[in-house]
Amino acid sequence: MAEAINRADTAASISESNTRAGTRNGRLWRVTAIARNAFREAVRDRVLYNLVLFVLLLTGASVFIGELSGGQERKVIVDLGLSAMLLFGVFIAIFVGVGLVYKEIERRTIYAVFSKPVGRGEFLVGKYFGLCVTLLLNVAVMGVGVSLALVYVKGGWDPLILTIWPAVLLIYMELMLLTSIALLFSSFSSPALSALLTFFVFIIGHFSADLKSLAGSLGSNSARWLFTGLYYLLPNLANYSFITPAAHGQAPSAGLVLLTALYSVVYITVILAAATLIFSRRNFK
């Protein structure tokens, strides 16, 4: 039933966008239609149900953590809330991200989509932005949840609320980057392998500082080049880690956030371009 609705939604959205295909914004309309459909699909797949778990977690923490943390409940709530936001987001980005393309192929809806004048790149980018919107909604609701938990614990306005939002923004950028990587892997491999590879990138991305120090400590020139290359090639996810300072009331500088945003845009563009390149050569027959 849901599949039929999805197919009807996609076809209707693309038909609507095709009427504008002759205009300058035709491509944008098609991408938007696919993104809207991907978002609807994620909502219908009950992806946002994780918010219920998140709310339960924060409510439990707000009520009980004071007993266990020795007066550090505000710090624990920020650490717990933002870490859960990142973890839940990573799971969504990986497990929903790897299925974005695969599900369309498995259901054969991709033939209906590509029978219309939709480019493969547009399809991928649309799917990507659809999941990004889902993640944005998820992260925004969770951010509000953490803020409310802080208000509850403090018994009023808490200045920490202002410092958590830049950290939330950085978490969202990290999730956007991870989604693009999941999409890249899913453009040429099975969902299970894509999920595994994306998870490895998430882990290695947080070890990038070690790659750099390892490169510096190695005697062999070739090994040093290899690890330095890996350091610059793999996404440096440590740049997005600002949960711990946020819990101490420290916000990242605007310059740092802008640079990190620029890094995300560049990296995501590269990854989506590579994914489009691979996906364009894929034969669905």
Partner: peptide
Amino acid sequence: RRMSLGFNGLAADWYWMRSLQ
């Protein structure tokens, strides 16, 4: 710290609460 994958603040909270317990 190396293995905490950016969750080092939460891990620190856990060790702190474990110390108190």
